[in-house]
């Protein structure tokens, strides 16, 4: 059995067409995968950008909460609507966007306004004393109160035990007996 001559001559052409279709299908799959990857990356980049904006705002709020409003009484730059506070907030935002660290930003304002601009003293040098002193004073005061209470508690039973029983005279005993009897009689009546 042999194939007709025409069919034999069409076979390489069919193989070539099949190969082309396979290649085309593979190419389409690659392009599809690439498109999905690019879309995913764009989506991720968009999400990251949105997150960054939130993070920037969170950092601006945290930093300005620690800075004292220069023109107000006892409120932070974060909570103040004074002109200087608004300008400081904008400056902090610009510095955050520029990539400066929180410490760098605080250092900039300290270099311009002094430690005064910080609402909480630094935990170093004299500032450390300010952090420790209230706690230490509380501890010492608490210790003193505890010591006094313990001393008073220890002293009282000893004093009670040492106290002599009061001696009653026969007249006093007779009076107590008489009063008790009268009390009982009144109760019964």
């Amino acid at each position: 059995m042999s194939a007709p001559a025409g069919a034999m001559s069409r076979l390489p052409a069919r193989v070539a067409v099949a190969r082309w279709r396979i290649a085309r299908w593979a190419l389409a799959r690659w392009i599809g995968a690439l498109a999905i990857a690019i879309a995913g990356m764009l989506l991720a980049a968009g999400t990251l950008r949105a997150l960054s904006a939130e993070q920037i705002e969170a950092r601006v709020l945290a930093i300005t909460d620690g800075l004292r409003c220069p023109t107000c009484q006892g409120i932070s730059v974060k909570d103040s609507e004074a002109g200087f506070s608004q300008q400081i907030r904008e400056k902090v935002r610009r510095m955050v966007i520029e990539g400066q660290s929180d410490e760098d930003i605080r250092a900039y304002f300290v270099s311009r306004y002094g430690e005064w601009i910080l609402r909480a003293p630094k935990k170093e040098g004299i500032g450390l004393v300010l952090w420790i002193l209230p706690g230490a004073a509380l501890l010492v005061a608490g210790g003193l109160v505890f010591w006094r209470i313990r001393r008073a508690g220890r002293g009282r039973p000893q004093a009670d035990a040492a106290a002599p029983e009061p001696e009653l005279s026969p007249e006093q005993r007779a009076r107590i007996a008489r009063d008790l009897k009268r009390f009982e009689d009144e109760e019964l009546a």
């Binding site: 220069p70 200087f84 300008q87 610009r94 311009r112 306004y113 002094g114």
Partner: peptide, 13 residues
């Protein structure tokens, strides 16, 4: 408007 000079000089008012 950003108060660049004022902030650089640490103005309180």
């Amino acid at each position: 408007a950003q108060g660049e000079i004022s902030l650089n000089y640490g103005l309180y008012g």
